[in-house]
Nucleic acid binder design. Sequence first.
DNA 1: TTAATTTTGAAACGTTTGTTTTAAAATAAG
DNA 2: CTTATTTTAAAACAAACGTTTCAAAATTAA
Lengths: 216, 216
Amino acid sequence: MIASSRNSLNFKTIVSKIFYLCFIMARLIEFDEEQAIQKAMEVFWKKGYAATSMRDLTDAMQINSSSLYNTIGDKHRLFVRCIKHYIKMRIDAVEQRYISFASPIQALESFIKDAADIITTEPNSCLCVKATFEIEGDDPEIQAIITSYDNFTHRFLKDLVEKAQSQHQIGQNENADTVADYLVSTFIGWYNSFILHQDRNKILNMADFIIRQLRC
Amino acid sequence: MIASSRNSLNFKTIVSKIFYLCFIMARLIEFDEEQAIQKAMEVFWKKGYAATSMRDLTDAMQINSSSLYNTIGDKHRLFVRCIKHYIKMRIDAVEQRYISFASPIQALESFIKDAADIITTEPNSCLCVKATFEIEGDDPEIQAIITSYDNFTHRFLKDLVEKAQSQHQIGQNENADTVADYLVSTFIGWYNSFILHQDRNKILNMADFIIRQLRC
DNA sequence: TTAATTTTGAAACGTTTGTTTTAAAATAAG
DNA sequence: CTTATTTTAAAACAAACGTTTCAAAATTAA
């Protein structure tokens, strides 16, 4: 079981934290937690959960394991933080890029091409996809977090599909939910294809193909 | 590195094997190797490579680790055997089911529906997809095996698409290579979707959607 | 400065890891 | 039966695992 032995903050720790905040100032935490999470995320992203050791993590984060356990918690708590950090990065990027767009169909096309580009240029595949296949039902907490990210992407795409349909930019016969599901599924398949074949053109051709299909 | 320390058969072992076959009959191997590989495969399939321990494997295979190392080799050799065994199962199933079919388009539709059915009814997702995301470039041997399986499926689908095109059962404008790539990608995305949402209807709707898209 | 408190670094903890060794059991030719 | 050889089971192996302990360093209110 991946999801075992998660000792989060206990009562004693919480009480001492409150005391710390209200009355007494002692030694301050030296390391930058955000930065450390970023480093840990990169390790998990490359190696996966089980294949990453605590030594790998503390080496990358440049902190001692006692500091890690004092602030963030055990390996699983850290993984949760890293997954959340990764998702926040991704959502922020999407929301920044798609604040406004000329038309829904153009936004859809951009999104598809962006996906193809990310998949064929980043050094690793998607941390969430890797985690999903690694845990596969054995870690409800991680799965719930990833599912909610999946839902975000789904809503985003479904919304664009509906708008494009109502503006007669794409066919109106298909169910927007299904089209959104199908787009998300395809992107995930692209990760797999690119790992196996390292063939950027394969992915770009599929992106063009999907865009053509959407238009009719 | 996943793919380290693979001590395969050394010279001494090979020589003694030859002696064994030519001259001397001693104690025979007791356990059924095929059966043991099947059991090991099931464990890897459920837990992944890194999260599976040698104790997990020898418990499932019901053999002692010394027997395992004597016959099959180390953990990585065993994983190779299990992946090959899995692929053989899959290829055999496809070749049995698709020896003959009324028409290319019907075969394509069947294949898509079969994929949807397998994905939504089997207890685990695809061993090869899990392995691909787990190793991601760190294990050339496993990756080559999985890639050749991917190529098999690709050729099978491309062949059907070409035949369906030449018989005017589907549109002839699209490149058969790209359509085959895109079908494979989509199936892999379905595994991800089903892990996260456990929603069979999502997958069936996407299967219907793809079939409709193919026809035009 | 003293007292109170926390973070830190290093070492240590008991398990579990993948793998090897060792000796006994099994087999069959001579 | 003896001899030669192999497979097996159990124990042992060092290394690595995730986690905890503990004393020293750091900090600041009093």
